[in-house]
Design a protein around this nucleic acid. Structure first.
Lengths: 345, 345
DNA sequence: CGAAGTTCGTATAACGTTATATACTTTCCT
DNA sequence: AGGAAAGTATATAACGTTATACGAACTTCG
């Protein structure tokens, strides 16, 4: 007699009994399936409400869907992901789907585990934000579960993609900085995962865009690319390296706002002022960049739109309204704030 | 012949066949249940590995557990939550449990939906971070599913709690500001949800701590409390109000770092410098506060420890090693940075 | 040496849904 | 009127696990 633990949940059977119909009928109403008269639907709905019926996702998952969408991301600190998530939620607000997020860390193994966990839970669809897992694993997963990959530019027949024209973004930054008079413009990009088989990760596309733009301006000799994790610490270390070199750059662009903050810290420590001594440009235009005390020039990626687009594409697939893979590319835009200026001559 | 869609998953049955044992035996090995010889365990494990077996969480959920822990939070932008999450992940790293996060928004209805969704999915345990849902709903959920509530100070027999001594935190801030010479110290706290039945939400406890401390210093007449959502926008509006009043405060403390950033923006717009004209104190000591260009004095809450503690308590309950409810209270500490100074005389 | 434990393994009934096959009514056309 | 087609509702076999009950083979011990 353990003080009435575990209140028994109402099942489809009891609803059927209460409404005076078969279990199959209740199931049909639940799924909006064909073969239900308005009268019966109404009756069943009423019984469900009265009894407080809630379908068991576990049981549903054994045969049909679970009405769950999984979102994989590496960490919660990058507020660009919060933008994307907002878009996903917005799109799925009035549907029966629930969004569950897996924060898998930066380690590819951990990410693979999380993806597996989502598949084990029979999630209906997956949104993978710049997964560090090998391409092969993602393709294998996507073969069985509808998947949208955000970030990577590699097209695939088996999954959909939403991405940002990062090459264009890089070019915009370089063009802008050159127009201010900068020539020694360095890029801080992410190291990426070794042998992940992705050929066009965001950082690779970004780097190519940067190099092409530098070349276009005849600045190929002034181009410098350093690799560091997109974090405050990563930006700090790379910033120290870059800024203590003999011919230090007059401008640094980073692949993420958070890394730019680390560069800022390094500059501060070396007694360099932004933007007087160093122009700094971030990427993603997160809330961080807009802070009064920060005012970081950044590239906006419309994360919210990317999220809602990904969600819409995913549901189309889940519900079988589309079988062909597709890619959506967003155009970035430059947001100029106070971290950039003409170089000291 | 749809190009071999849906690769058939390996089931317990096939593992049993391959290992030459019964399904029951495989299930036992899977659960580390009693009644398995080392030899058989080894054999089954080998078969599972060879066939690439993965248990179906849906099927498991129908009778036993799902090995899933759900974490409810309102939004992803508050990086204090990321700290908590890190602690949760850390604690659960070497276990079979997977953490799934629901970002439910600030709306109580949305949060209730998300909690229901987690229960529908038969999650083994729930961690609710300062839920805005009514206390009654939380108690009802906790009666069936092991639950840890983070933030709210209301004790309950049915769920565990992890909280921060917010009254002490407020007192520390007031004491410090008074020691600097401040007298007109305002508090910006969260509005909280109407009729949520929680009597001791973090913001209420914080406010009480603040009022008591002001009183202790004989400053009850100088006490001002304004309520605004913990967001940049909320802080901005409240900041404008406070700082454009005739007798404006010389110091403002906020219940969240992110709100302090909004106050900063308001001060900037009014031509007030921090800390010369206004001392500003945040709460949570998020990464935001530590940024070079921000340097916000804040109260550290040891979010990571709160997360790992919550996870440990939850697993104890899930695995039935404890049935009595318990509360853990953390002691906050003040981190002084450059946003506070003596008031201009 | 037989009774009473242990230990290890098996058979099988749940668990709560979905989807397929089927039966019974109507409605719609010649 | 007669038969096909369309519309409704039902019965029931999965789905992949877990947990209980039970049986068989060993030990232990008085």
């Amino acid at each position: 007699m353990d003080s009435a633990k575990q209140t028994k949940r109402v099942t489809i059977k009891e609803v059927a009994l209460h409404a005076g119909v078969s279990m199959a009928a209740v199931s049909k109403v639940l799924r909006n399936a064909y073969g239900t008269s308005p009268a019966m639907t109404e009756k069943v709905r009423a019984s469900m409400a009265e009894l407080g019926y809630r379908p068991s996702s576990a049981a549903r998952g054994m045969r049909g869907r679970t009405y769950t969408i999984g979102v994989l991301l590496d960490n919660l600190r990058n507020s660009f992901f919060a933008d994307i998530l907002e878009g996903v939620h917005e799109e799925l607000l009035d549907t029966d789907y629930t969004v569950l997020i897996g924060a898998a860390g930066f380690d590819p193994t951990g990410q693979a585990h999380t993806i597996d966990a989502m598949v084990d839970r029979r999630m209906d669809g997956l949104i993978l934000i710049a997964p560090g897992t090998s391409r092969g694993e993602v393709l294998a997963t996507a073969a069985d579960t509808p998947t949208v990959v955000i970030g990577h530019h590699d097209a695939a027949e088996v999954h959909d993609s939403v991405l940002d024209a990062d090459d264009m973004g890089a070019a915009m930054v370089v063009d802008y900085l050159v127009s201010l008079g900068h020539r020694r413009i360095a890029l801080l990009s992410s190291p990426g995962t070794k042998s992940s088989q992705w050929r066009k990760t965001p950082e690779i596309v970004l780097t190519n865009g940067y190099l092409e733009a530098m070349q276009r301006h005849g600045l190929e000799d002034a181009a410098t690319v350093v690799r560091a994790p997109y974090s405050d610490e990563g930006g700090y270390k790379a910033g120290l390296d870059l800024l203590s070199a003999t011919h230090r750059p007059t401008a640094i662009m980073t692949g993420a706002d958070v890394a730019a903050m680390g560069v800022f810290r390094a500059a501060d420590e070396l007694g360099l002022r932004v933007p007087a001594d160093l122009s700094l440009v971030g990427y993603n235009n997160t809330a961080l960049a807009a802070l009064t005390s920060v005012q970081l020039t950044s590239v906006d990626q419309a994360g919210r739109t990317m999220g809602s687009t990904a969600a819409r594409m995913l549901i189309e697939r889940v519900e079988g309204r589309r079988t062909r893979a597709m890619q959506t590319t967003m155009t970035p835009s430059l947001v100029v704030r106070r971290s950039t200026a003409a170089p000291a001559s």
